[in-house]
């Protein structure tokens, strides 16, 4: 028996832990990837160019409400748009998927840890300055995270447009075709739909809010399907983030003439 170095039992020092695993690795991954994505998307949202090529429309800009694009639903840039304000179709639409992800239960837990260090990881010491002043999502401002369900409703509409974009991505000038972009868009919509329809708020809407689950075959299938997707919500959250990012980069590079699309069919 020997005395080891005396350490305080209560861990109050930032990042102090007696965990021996690489608890920091996933937090670092989250920090780096989300920072890179937010930086890219923030820059991208102000770019009113290179968002379409051939049959492809970048999911960052879809649906195009206004703009100089054949995809524009309501015509060109509106005259009432302030002349001093930057314009891009993404400015009008990107808030929906961004808000959906920002208020998503999975991402909340992930960025509270990676960015806020609240906590840095399970059983790892927090910055001591917070102490009992911690408010969580109990009070302002994070109580606003409860708006998540409204972003879900809007995102379902966006998913519909993204699905239509996959169809459009098969309509080349010479008729039906499949390019690398088509495949990328198809994979993207599967993962985005998996992420959106496996959302916790969707699960609540489809049956979780009741003590008795839906009894109709359709209602039961919807709730059970949503629950199955929900079990993989984290996976869908990450994969769909990468695919939507990849789709935009792909279209952007095609449009800039940096790469060429490869036709499979």
């Amino acid at each position: 028996m020997s005395e080891a170095a005396g350490a305080p039992r209560r861990l109050r020092v930032f990042l102090e832990t007696r965990r021996t695993d690489s608890w920091w690795a996933f937090q670092l991954f989250t920090l780096l990837v989300l920072t890179a994505f937010v930086a890219y998307a923030t820059q991208r949202v102000f770019v009113d160019a290179h968002y379409e090529w051939g049959p492809y429309l970048s999911p960052f800009y879809s649906p195009v409400l206004f703009g100089d694009s054949r995809h524009a639903l309501f015509g060109p840039k509106p005259e009432w748009w302030p002349s001093w304000a930057p314009f891009s179709p993404a400015l009008l639409i990107l808030a929906i998927p961004a808000g959906f992800r920002f208020t998503c239960y999975y991402y909340r837990g992930a960025y509270y840890k990676a960015f806020w260090a609240d906590p840095p990881a399970c059983a790892v010491g927090e910055p001591g300055l917070r102490g009992r002043r911690f408010r969580g999502e109990h009070r302002w401002p994070l109580i606003l995270q409860n708006v998540h369900r409204y972003f879900l409703y809007l995102s379902v509409v966006v998913v519909g447009f993204l699905a239509y974009d996959v169809y459009l991505a098969t309509q080349f000038e010479d008729g039906f075709g499949i390019g690398v972009g088509t495949v990328l868009f198809a994979v993207n919509i599967v993962l985005i739909a998996g992420y959106t329809f496996g959302c916790h708020s969707m699960r609540h809407l489809l049956g979780g809010r009741r003590d008795v689950l839906p009894k109709s075959a359709i209602g039961r299938a919807c709730y059970q399907g949503c629950s199955r997707l929900n079990r993989r919500h984290m996976l869908f959250a990450w994969l769909s983030l990468f695919t939507v990012w990849s789709c935009d980069v792909y279209v952007r590079l095609l449009s800039m003439g940096v790469i060429r699309d490869i036709r499979i069919l």
Binding site: C122, A123, G136, E137, L142, H200, G208
Partner: peptide, 28 residues
């Protein structure tokens, strides 16, 4: 104080009975 929970899922991680605490109980 359910609003204090900020969904870190640490409770789910350590549960020896593998109850999906956060996804199936707290978030609903």
């Amino acid at each position: 104080g359910i609003g204090y929970c900020n969904i870190t899922k640490c409770c789910t991680v350590v549960c020896p009975e593998h109850i999906t605490i956060t996804d199936n109980a707290i978030i609903p």
